[in-house]
Simulated scan of single mutants.
Amino acid sequence: MPPAAAAERTTRTVHRLLLGAAGWSLVHLLVGLRWLLDPDSWPGFDDEGRAGLLAVLHRTPSAWTVTGLAATGLLLAVLGRYRPASRAVAVALAVQAGLLLAVSADVGVLTLLGYLCALVGPAAFLAVLVVGAVRDRRARPWLAAVLGLAVVGVVSGVLRPGTVGRLAGQLGDGFARHAGPPAHLGLVLVGAALFGTAAVLLRRSATGRCQACGRPAARWTEPAAALRWGRLATWAAVAGPLPYALLRLTWLTPWPLGMPEGGDLEPAMRLFGLGLGFAALGGAVLTAGLVRPWGEVWPGWVPVLRGRPVPVAFPVVAGGLVATVLLASTPGMVALAVGEVRDGDPMGWAMLLVFPTLPWGLALAAAVTGYALRRRGTCRSCGRGEPALPLRA
C-alpha cells in the first residue's frame, strides 16, 4: 500500500473512532435522561457485591454522572473531528477515557466475562479439538485425555444430562436478574476504549509522529527489545489465573476449597467450578501463545485456519480486553476484600492472592504490547521500523 493511501486509511480510522464515540455518547445521553426521569428504571443498584462508582453514588447522582459524561463525550467527538491537530483535544479525550474507566471500576464486568468464558469456552475448545484431531494426529492424545475426563465426569454425576440442565437453568435465571448492570459497565468500557484510542492517534498527529505506528519511538519498542521484556511479562501473566484455576478445580475432589457456605457441593455447582477452572487454565494457555510459534501461525489442530498466520489484531484485541477488565475490576476487588475483613473475616485479603487482578492485568497488558511491537513490522504509512521478528519453533 502506498504511504499516502496508508495515511488516508489511518485518518479514516480516526474518523470512525470519533463517529463511534459520538454514537456511544448519544446512546448514553438518552440512558442518563431516562434515569433522571425515572431513577428506578435501571435495576441492579441494590445487588450484593457491587462496589463501583455508580453503585456508590446510587440512582439520581449516577444518572447525572452518566448524562454529564455523555454530553462531554459528544462535544469532544465533534471537536476531535474538526480539530485533529489540537493537543488540548487529545488530552481532553484521554481524560474522558480515564473518567469512563473510573465509572466502570467494578467487579461486575469481570464476573460476567468469567461466567461467559466458563459457559462457552470449554464447549468451543472441545468442538475445535474434535474437528482438528480428525486431520492432525498430534491432537489425538489430547482429545483422548479430554474424552477420558468427560467419562469420569459422567460416572461421577457431574456431567450427566440432568446436572447440566439444572446448571443451565440456574445460570439462565441468574443472568436474567443480574446481567443488566455488568452489561452496561461493559458498554462503558467500550466507550473508554473508543475515546482512549482516538486520544492516542490524535496525540501522535499533534506531536508530529506517525499516526499509524507512533514512530519515531524509544528503543524499548524495537522488536528485539520487545521480545526480551515481553517474554518476562507473558510468563508473569500466565501465572496470574493459575491460583484461581487450582482453587476451582478442587471442587471436583472431596476436599473443595473456597466453596460457598452450606456444606457439600451439589453436582451442578461442582460442574460450574469445573467450567470456571478450565476457563482460567485456558486463559493461561492462550496467554503463553504470545511467546510461542503457535501464537503466530495457527496450529494444525485448528480447523480451516491451520497453517495460516494469526492476525496480529486478534490476540492483541482479545488480550487487551481481558487486561482492561482485570485492571478496571481491581478497585472493586479491593473494596470487597476490605468489606470481608471489616465483617470479621481475616481471610478476606486472600481473594487478592487467589485472583490478583492488578499484577495479572498489568503483566497481561505488557505481554500484549510486547507481542504487538514484535510482530507489527515496517509501517506501511511512514516506512519506518524493522521487519517483524518471528519466533523459532
Rank of each mutant, 00 (worst) to 15 (best):
P3V: 02
R9W: 09
T10Y: 01
R12Q: 09
L17Y: 01
L18W: 08
S25R: 05
V27R: 02
W35Q: 13
F45H: 14
G52A: 05
V66M: 13
A71F: 11
T72N: 09
G73E: 00
A92F: 10
L99Q: 05
L101W: 05
S104A: 15
D106Q: 04
G121I: 04
P122T: 05
A127E: 01
R137L: 15
R137W: 12
A145G: 02
G148T: 13
L149R: 00
G153Y: 05
T163N: 08
G169E: 12
L171H: 11
A179N: 00
P182L: 07
T197R: 13
L202E: 00
R203Q: 07
A206F: 15
G214T: 02
P216W: 08
R219D: 11
R219N: 04
R219S: 12
L227Y: 00
R231T: 14
R231I: 02
W235M: 01
R248F: 13
L249C: 02
L252S: 00
T253K: 06
D264G: 06
P267I: 02
P267Y: 00
A268K: 03
L274Q: 05
L281V: 14
G282D: 10
A288F: 14
E296D: 08
V304Q: 00
L305Y: 02
L305F: 10
R306F: 15
P309S: 09
F314C: 07
A318S: 14
V325F: 02
S329W: 15
M333Y: 12
L336T: 11
A337H: 07
V338N: 01
V341M: 12
G344M: 09
W349Q: 06
A350I: 07
A365S: 10
G370R: 09
L373H: 00
T378W: 11
S381E: 05
C382R: 13
P387G: 05
